[in-house]
Amino acid sequence: MTGQDAVFLLLGAVAVGSGALCVTTRQIVHAALWLVVSFGALAGGYLVLTAEFVAWVQVLIYVGAVVVLLLFGIMLTRAPIGADADLDSGNRWIALGVALATAALLVTVMVLGFGGAHRPVDAGGGSADQLGASVFRTWVLPFEVLSVLLLASLVGAIVLSRSDIGARSDDGNGAEEGEG
């Protein structure tokens, strides 16, 4: 085990542990904050894997934007701030069984498939200029399609959030139901 492996395993343990705390904590705001820890540890893991640009995008978008958006959602739905015993549903033990089975299956497959595979990882493969070159040369069509997708989801989110527009008045009373 090299130093790279050790650092990655530590970061991975932090990511998985804070992820587990995120899905088991009784306080919904703490769940969002544990999510920050998990995503930050994953960004560190990307750095160890020499994917620098992905690591910074992870910090910017996940830790910066997504978690803030989730916190906004928590506040706007007036979630209880203190401990709430009602966050877990009744099928917690079935969920635990399914999750353990998933973990066992996937880890077994990975260990059987790539058990002793070892290869040195050299730096420089994930820098911004290399990724930018491949995005704008090879993958430029998916990139443009993705921008259309972002525009569509932006318009959809605005339409869903506005309360002063609704279904047209001549096709039923959908607008009034939406307002109630």
Binding site: M1, T2, Q4, D5, F8, L9, G12, A15, V16, G19, S38, L42, G45, L49, T102, A103, L106, V107, M110, V111, F114, G115, G116, A117, H118, R119, P120, V121
Partner: peptide, 14 residues
Amino acid sequence: MHIVYPTSVSALLF
């Protein structure tokens, strides 16, 4: 770098 470590972390996170 052992490839099994990132994939195992990923499986556990999933």
